[in-house]
Amino acid sequence: MRIRFLIGLALVLIVFTQCKDENQTVLEKKYIFQVPMGFSEPILRKDNPITFSKIALGKKLFFDPILSLDSSISCGSCHRPQFAFSDPNPISPGVKGKIALRNAPSLSNLAWHPYFFAEGGSPNLEAQVLGPVEDQNEMAFSIVKAVNRLKDNSTYNQLFQEVFLDSPSVYTTTRAIAAFERSLISSNSKFDKYVLEGDKAAFTPVEKRGYELFISDSLKCNTCHSGFMLTDFSFQNNGIYEIYEDPGRARLTLNDTDRGKFKVPSLRNIAFTGPYMHDGSFKNLEEIIDHYASGGKNHENQSRKIQGFSISEEDKIALVQFLQCLTDSVFIGNEVY
C-alpha cells in the first residue's frame, strides 16, 4: 500500500515538474486588458502577455533606482504618479547632476502609442526601456549591467522566477517594465464621460464652451490633438522658437524639414503634466493658449495649422476649464500604479 502511495506521488511530481510553465501560469488569475469605451484596440505583444505578477514586478523595477548607474534615480523619479507620471521639472535631472535632453512626458494609455520618444524612434514599449536606462544624461547605465545587478539580487531572482520561470535577463526585464507601463490606463476624466461615453451632463456650461472652442474652426486644437488619445501622433513644429537647438525628429531622419518637429503629445491629464513643450518652457495652460493665439514664431518648418487666433479672456478661461476636464482623478496618484 505504501509503495503505491509513493508511486502515485512520484507520478504527480513528474507531471508537475515536466510542465512547470503550463501549471504555474494556470495558477495565476488572468489579467484581462480592459479597453475603455471609445478607445480603439490597444497595441499588445504576443510575446509579452500581461499578468498581474508581471505588472507588479514591472512596477517594482519602475520605481527602483537599481537600474541607474549610481542607483540614485528610477524611472519613477522623472515619471511621478502624482503628476500623471510626468515631472514638474522643465527638464529632469539625471545621475550625477546631469540634465536630460527633454521634458519628461506623461505616461498613460501607452498601449495605444504607435511609437515612443519625441522623435518617434523607438518602436515599442519593450525597446523603449533601453532609452532612459542607457541615456548618458538620464540613468547612464548599461541594460546588461543593470540586469547583472538584478541577477545578484535574491529578491529579484525569486520574483523573476515566479513571473517568467527564468532569471533576470534583458528580455524579461524589459518585458516586465513594459507590462507595467501598458497597465497605466487613464479613462475616467470628464472628457471620457462627455465625449466618449455620451454623458451630456458631464460638462458644466463653461467647460462645454471650452470644448466647443477646442474643436472650433478658429482654434482647431483637435486637428492635432484628436481622438480618444487627444493626439494624432504626428510630428509637428509648433513654432515656439525661431531657432531650434533640439533637432527634434530631424535627429532621426537627418532631414532639415523635420527640424523642430516633435511628436504631438496626448493632452490627457494636462493640468497635472506641466511644464509644457519638449523643453518644459511653458509654465501653465494660459501660456500655451497665448502661444497658439500669437500664431507662433514662424520657423520655416512651423506647422501651417498654427495660424493664430483671437480669444477673449472669458473664452480663455473656458478653454482652460475644458483642459482641466481631461484630468482623471482616479488615475492621478493612484497607488495601484
Binding site: E119, G121, S122, V129, L130, D135, S142, V144, V170, Y171
Partner: peptide
C-alpha cells in the same frame, strides 16, 4: 531589437552596445 534576443545571442544587448537606445 536587442531586447528580443536571449542574452547569449550575438544580436542581444551587450555592455558595449551596438544600438541607439533612442532609435530602432
Amino acid at each position: 531589437q536587442p531586447i528580443d534576443f536571449a542574452d547569449s545571442h550575438a544580436l542581444a544587448a551587450k555592455v558595449n552596445n551596438m544600438w541607439w537606445s533612442w532609435n530602432a
